[in-house]
Amino acid sequence: MRKRRLYRGMFGVAVVYILYVTFMNFIHDPQAAAFLSHKVGLKRTVNTSIWLPVMMVHIVAACIAMLAGAVNFSNLILTRYRSFHRANGYLYVIAVILVDITSGYMAPYATGGKMNSMAFNFINFIWLIMTIAAVVFIKRKQLAKHRKWMIRSYVFCYTNLFIHLISFLASKGVGLPYVTSYTIGVYGAIVINILLAEWIIRRVI
């Protein structure tokens, strides 16, 4: 029952957040004017004619990864539709790679400067390593290890959610400057992702 409640909650959060991100970035503010307004004092000028399309690909790939990963944690899909589970798993891997590539391009323009750029590059690296580890273990038929590494990989789909949640609380709740709040959000999200994955592995599965 605990696993079922966790899965339903996770799936619900994923769907709601995907709808929210889609609305905010493709309907409400497709030029990302609000987000770009916080990118002050950067050493590199943001070329919006390139940055915006890259960001859109980044968002779409991140949403695909979030949804594909959520679907593949379903026991029903795993037991009854193995071929779909496998294909959907590869879709997840491709989506993660696309997120990493686009994030790598955008990292030098990160709000908050070099400190946050390094954090995003770190996220890109460990997320890819965790995803590759999950693929390697399933190729070796080590299902338990595959599942653990998929959990570690999948929580990073929620990085952006945690960043904006923490930065919102820090800026609106505590009254910190936006850039400071965003930096706290970036590093806080990394810590939450790692701790959350290990908690799920040890306490739920």
Rank of each mutant, 00 (worst) to 15 (best):
L128N: 05
R44D: 15
T180N: 10
M24N: 05
T180D: 12
A95P: 04
A65G: 08
V179P: 02
A61C: 06
R80F: 12
H146M: 15
V60F: 08
G89N: 04
G173H: 04
T22E: 08
I151Y: 07
L76I: 11
I129F: 02
T79K: 12
R8D: 00
L78K: 14
H58W: 07
H58M: 03
A133Y: 01
S167Q: 11
I123K: 13
T131F: 00
T45Q: 13
N116I: 04
G112A: 09
L161H: 08
L19R: 15
T131M: 02
M150L: 13
P30S: 05
I184T: 00
I101F: 08
A33W: 15
R203W: 12
N121A: 00
S167M: 14
R2A: 08
F11S: 08
L169A: 14
F73P: 05
I138P: 08
L52A: 13
V135I: 05
N88Q: 02
P30D: 02
S37T: 15
V179Y: 02
F23D: 04
V16L: 15
A70H: 06
M115H: 14
G185Q: 05
T131K: 02
V21G: 02
S167V: 13
G175M: 12
S167R: 06
T159L: 09
N72I: 09
C157M: 03
K39P: 14
A87W: 03
T102D: 09
V54G: 14
L128F: 13
K3M: 07
P108G: 02
H38E: 15
G112M: 11
T131A: 04
S103E: 08
I166P: 13
A119C: 11
W149G: 02
N116G: 10
A87K: 01
F122R: 10
S117N: 11
A87N: 07
V54Q: 13
E198D: 01
S181C: 09
N72K: 10
N47E: 12
E198F: 06
S171V: 00
F26G: 01
R44Y: 15
V155A: 04
I163W: 05
A87S: 05
T22M: 03
N193L: 00
H85Y: 06
Y154V: 06
R152L: 03
F11H: 04
A107C: 04
R140H: 12
E198S: 02
F11E: 01
N88H: 03
M1H: 13
V15I: 14
H58I: 07
G175D: 10
K141L: 08
K145C: 09
V204K: 01
V15G: 01
M1R: 10
K141W: 07
H85I: 05
T45V: 12
Y158G: 09
V155D: 01
K114A: 14
I132S: 06
T45D: 11
M10T: 00
S181E: 06
R80N: 13
G89Y: 05
A33H: 15
A144R: 12
M56D: 14
A144I: 09
K39L: 12
G112P: 13
M130T: 03
I201Y: 02
L165D: 14
M118S: 00
P30F: 05
L128Y: 02
A133K: 06
G89T: 03
P53H: 00
I184P: 05
H38Y: 15
H146F: 13
Y178G: 07
H85A: 05
I190G: 00
K43Q: 14
I18W: 10
Y109D: 13
